[in-house]
Structures are given as C-alpha cells and as structure tokens.
Design a protein around this nucleic acid. Structure first.
Length: 205
DNA sequence: TAAAAGATCCCCT
DNA sequence: GGGGATCTTTTAT
C-alpha cells in the first residue's frame, strides 16, 4: 500500500520531520525514486547553521513558507541540494535530504550522473549517497524550488510516499549525529540516518 | 563594488 | 588524506 504524504505530515518541527522522513520514498522530477536513509534538520528556532538564521532573503524565502514544499538551492558553483519545508507558515524550518537508497529508475539516475561526471559516478553506491548526488540523479534543480510535494502532476512528479516500510529494529532504528559540512551548530545532533546502510553519504562514518 | 564563504563532489597521491 | 573545480548569495566596505 502506498500513501502520499499530506500537508499535515509536514507541519511538524524539522527535527521531528527529519526522523519521520526516514524510510519514506522520494520520487524525483525524472521519475526515479529511492528510500530516504539520511536527513538533517535546519531552522525551527535559533539554528546558527540555517540559511534563514538572519531572516528571509531571496534565496531562502521558501523555507519561511508553507510546509510540504521543496526548497532547492545552488552551492559550490555546481551543486544543488534538496530540502523539504517543515513547521508552520512564517517559521523557518526545513529538512535536507542527504542520501537515498536507490529503488527504481536506476538507468535514469546513471544517465543524469554520467552527463557531468565520469564513469566512476555511476556506481550504484555513488548514485544517491550525498545531497548533491541525489539531486542530480533525480533531476532536481532550481526549477524545482518552491514546488508543492502534496500536489504532484504529470509535469511535476516530485513527491514523497509511505510504502509501509518497517525498520528492522523498531524503537531504535536510526542514529543521530552532528550535521555534516557546517561551521556552527555542531553541538546539535540533528543528522538522522539508518546506521550501516551502504548508501549513506560518503562524508559520513 | 568587492570579497568571502559555501548544508559538495571527484580525482589524484 | 588533500586540493581543485566553479559561481551564486550574502555581507561588508
């Protein structure tokens, strides 16, 4: 059974949404999809590492909007990162999708990755094992910034659904750690992931 | 107007 | 383990 996540599912604090999204299935703009195995929470209060920490700007305005929308930003001159807006309207909160376990559309993922990088980029464990990798593999770019995940259409396929996946160890099925790649807020254990999963982002341990 | 940093990735040693 | 690629956004002058 498949259930597409609805608005209310997203209207919770980012730290809760980061855990809730683990195990759910993320469908990309090109139809490829994978299971969410690694997330990070941002904002939702005083978070020095959040893009919205110093108030709204043209880039981060989506983070202040309605939950259930996609926040995509460009970074390091060549990469996109994919976030899901959380919390209440007016609040700045989002969850970064850091890694997926590929489930379908593997050929599409490989083709997308092959375009800009070499052969080494299309190993199955290299397809979605990082925020910029999965964005590229699933066709997520700046055009997807601000789209509504609760209302996919034939043109906008991006959404998240629950396929009834049950973690192996209910109650203690995920681990928490400091977030990766940030220069402040390292004290917060806001990264959540399935431990010992071979598809985790490579910068994780 | 300028400068710095960046929620990253890949390849080489 | 280390450095280069590459360029937008933000903040400071």
């Amino acid at each position: 059974m498949k259930r597409r996540l609805k608005r209310a599912d997203y209207q919770i604090p980012p730290t809760e949404l980061a855990v809730y999204l683990l195990g759910k299935v993320f469908v990309g703009a090109n139809g490829a999809f994978g299971r969410i195995i690694e997330t990070e929470a941002y904002g939702g209060g005083n978070d020095p590492a959040s893009h919205g920490n110093r108030g709204p700007t043209p880039r981060n305005q989506v983070m202040f909007g309605e939950a259930g929308h996609l926040y995509v930003y460009f970074t390091y001159g060549m990469h996109y990162c994919t976030n899901v807006v959380a919390g209440e309207k007016g609040e700045c909160a989002a969850v970064l999708i850091r890694a997926l376990e590929p489930l379908g559309g593997m050929e599409k993922m490989k083709n997308a990755r092959l375009k800009t990088f070499g052969k080494g980029a299309i190993k199955e464990t290299n397809l979605c094992s990082g925020p910029a990798k999965l964005a590229q593999a699933l066709g997520i770019g700046i055009k997807q910034n601000g789209i509504d995940l609760t209302k996919p259409t034939p043109k906008q396929k991006v959404h998240i659904y629950d396929d009834g996946f049950i973690p192996e160890k209910p109650g203690k099925f995920y681990a928490a750690s400091p977030r990766i790649g940030i220069s402040s807020g390292q004290n917060l254990l806001w990264r959540h992931f399935f431990p010992e999963n071979p598809y985790l982002s490579s910068t994780s341990s």
